[in-house]
Amino acid sequence: MAAGGDHGSPDSYRSPLASRYASPEMCFVFSDRYKFRTWRQLWLWLAEAEQTLGLPITDEQIQEMKSNLENIDFKMAAEEEKRLRHDVMAHVHTFGHCCPKAAGIIHLGATSCYVGDNTDLIILRNALDLLLPKLARVISRLADFAKERASLPTLGFTHFQPAQLTTVGKRCCLWIQDLCMDLQNLKRVRDDLRFRGVKGTTGTQASFLQLFEGDDHKVEQLDKMVTEKAGFKRAFIITGQTYTRKVDIEVLSVLASLGASVHKICTDIRLLANLKEMEEPFEKQQIGSSAMPYKRNPMRSERCCSLARHLMTLVMDPLQTASVQWFERTLDDSANRRICLAEAFLTADTILNTLQNISEGLVVYPKVIERRIRQELPFMATENIIMAMVKAGGSRQDCHEKIRVLSQQAASVVKQEGGDNDLIERIQVDAYFSPIHSQLDHLLDPSSFTGRASQQVQRFLEEEVYPLLKPYESVMKVKAELCL
């Protein structure tokens, strides 16, 4: 049975990233139509530049190519590739079939990587351009969430054990800070992308030097003109047959890092959902379990974690691919890159769409948070109580021993009897502590235990987050809708 299948058929496997999760716009960027249309555009740009620099290419040939950029006979191309065992030459023939007058000058002087690699770089750039505003929107939604809850005390956790208090907004800023680093890295790697350009079979530009009869300047002009037509500021000066596969490492490393950030955020949300302090959106008709109707599973956060793990592992592909590119190139890269580049971007696209949807509907339960604080705060307040007693004339050592005994009794009630923490009640009825009984409410005010959390939130948002989001103001209103 021949390899390949009808990918629109229910009898043929289709990647869930495309069929179930990723956005239509990201799927289109990695589609065959987008790819092969870009090949034709690159052939047109090459012909236009070659004509401008004096090669015998007519206006009629150029116009014929322009008129057929979208006229792609995919069936013919597939048949040609089956016959020739070469995808680029299959599309040269297919393009030439609908451009008979231009057929002889299509791909003039070029090698397969002229269309293959340059198209990949265009796709990487455009895919990054799709991700950047999506990530900015996630940051914006979380920034709104953090600002609104900047002063809401909550129990902090280290080692997932109760620690000092923080605020809900401050905790959210930990998430935002990681995503801001990801946004900066995505922008950097996007701006650092260079075009492969017009380089020939081993990167020496020998074929173009021959076409222009040894004119170095025209060869350099050709490279520059096509690079500018493709919208790049610069091209690699040095290439082998391909652009260095280190570029793929750079791009997928940034995406993998984004995956790590999203995994951490969504894990926190899942843990908070278990504590009943916070939940992701839950639709009115949504079913959490087929057997347990009360369940409210954090399905979206779980999906993000599941896909983020996949995204983090994909960076190993370009690392290994770059390491086995012998001399000017081997074909070890080809099949692998067809999979890992598309999957990385479709996965990143999915987790950003999902995280935006989550961040637009996060639900906080202040009463649950308050109750958990009441359970733990008495123990945390013991040092403040000791200091207040010393100020009232008591002995630190005597007070410490009193607190120690009462704390152990209260802990026994919590752990052995399943009761509430009654340390404060014990202190309130103990005559030894009568000098500070009137101060206990103040000493137990949760806001006095959150330090500068709310001020940190305000400063972080104003100095770091809002300036970073400013270039994306025009796209901030787009909502994230999930079908599944």
Rank of each mutant, 00 (worst) to 15 (best):
C266W: 06
P153V: 05
S323Y: 05
F212G: 05
S140C: 14
I57V: 11
A411C: 13
Q416V: 08
L142S: 05
E462T: 14
Q51K: 10
E277H: 06
V88S: 09
H437M: 06
P10I: 15
E250F: 07
L272G: 08
G104M: 14
L152F: 07
L174R: 04
L272M: 14
I249C: 11
S407E: 11
A273E: 14
Q221S: 09
R196E: 11
C483Q: 15
V219Y: 00
A410E: 02
L271S: 05
S140K: 15
R452S: 12
Q205M: 14
D422L: 06
P467R: 09
G104N: 10
Y13I: 11
C340K: 01
M89S: 06
P467E: 10
L252I: 13
L53D: 02
L255G: 02
D349V: 05
I358L: 15
C173K: 01
C27G: 12
Q458I: 07
C180R: 02
K134F: 07
I424M: 14
F379P: 06
T242A: 09
V405H: 13
A308P: 02
H86L: 02
R303Y: 01
T354N: 10
N384G: 06
L468M: 15
D11N: 13
V315P: 11
M89R: 00
S112Q: 04
Q161S: 02
E64P: 00
S359C: 10
E463T: 10
V413R: 10
V29M: 15
H7F: 13
I237W: 08
L186Q: 07
Q205H: 07
L46S: 02
N357L: 02
Y466L: 12
D6M: 15
C180V: 09
G240L: 04
A256L: 05
A480V: 13
A110H: 02
T382K: 04
P471V: 15
N68R: 08
D178I: 01
G109V: 00
C180L: 12
Q456L: 12
S407W: 03
L484A: 15
F327E: 08
V457D: 02
D268A: 11
I373N: 01
S407L: 14
D317L: 08
Q439N: 11
I238Y: 00
L255A: 11
T321Q: 12
F345Q: 05
I424L: 13
K295D: 05
A230T: 04
S112A: 02
A3M: 15
S407K: 04
L331K: 01
E250M: 09
I237P: 07
C98W: 08
R459Q: 11
P378C: 04
D11T: 13
L124V: 14
D6E: 15
F95M: 10
D191T: 12
L406E: 06
R190T: 11
T267K: 04
D398N: 10
L69P: 04
S289M: 04
F236I: 10
I358Y: 05
D120T: 07
Q416I: 10
L423H: 06
L46I: 06
A308T: 11
G109K: 00
I351L: 14
K218V: 00
L152S: 06
K233C: 09
A2L: 13
F28W: 07
N185V: 05
H7L: 13
D215G: 08
P318D: 00
E80I: 15
K224Y: 13
Q184V: 14
D178P: 00
E48M: 09
P56S: 11
C172P: 04
I249A: 11
A291P: 05
I57Y: 00
L443H: 00
M76P: 05
L352N: 01
V198G: 08
A18C: 12
F195T: 03
L331T: 03
S112C: 03
I72F: 13
S395D: 14
L355A: 10
H400N: 05
W326S: 04
G240Q: 05
F145V: 09
K295F: 03
E417M: 11
C305K: 09
D117K: 00
F327I: 06
S253P: 02
L179S: 05
A273W: 02
C305A: 08
M380K: 05
G240T: 09
R196W: 01
R245E: 03
W326I: 10
E283R: 09
A3F: 12
L319H: 07
E228A: 12
A322Y: 11
I424H: 14
H7D: 09
G96I: 08
Q63A: 09
V92S: 07
I249Y: 08
Q164F: 06
I427F: 10
D215F: 12
M380S: 03
T321M: 09
F345A: 11
M89N: 00
K187Q: 11
P153I: 04
L275R: 08
I105P: 08
S15R: 10
A90M: 00
L311P: 04
C266D: 01
P467L: 10
A411Q: 08
V198W: 02
F460A: 01
H217G: 11
K147C: 09
I351V: 12
D333R: 03
L209T: 11
D178V: 03
G231R: 09
I385C: 06
L406A: 10
L482D: 08
A90P: 00
G54C: 09
R329C: 02
D332L: 00
I424K: 15
V92P: 00
L468G: 08
M387H: 06
C180E: 07
T204A: 09
M26G: 00
G419C: 13
L132C: 14
L42V: 12
K415P: 02
V465L: 06
G203P: 01
V88E: 00
Y432T: 07
Q241Y: 01
I105N: 12
E64I: 07
Q320K: 06
A260C: 06
L108A: 14
E79P: 06
D215Y: 09
S9A: 11
R426H: 05
K415L: 06
E64A: 12
A381F: 12
T382M: 15
D445K: 14
L135K: 06
Q177T: 13
N353P: 08
G116Q: 12
T111K: 03
D317V: 06
T201D: 01
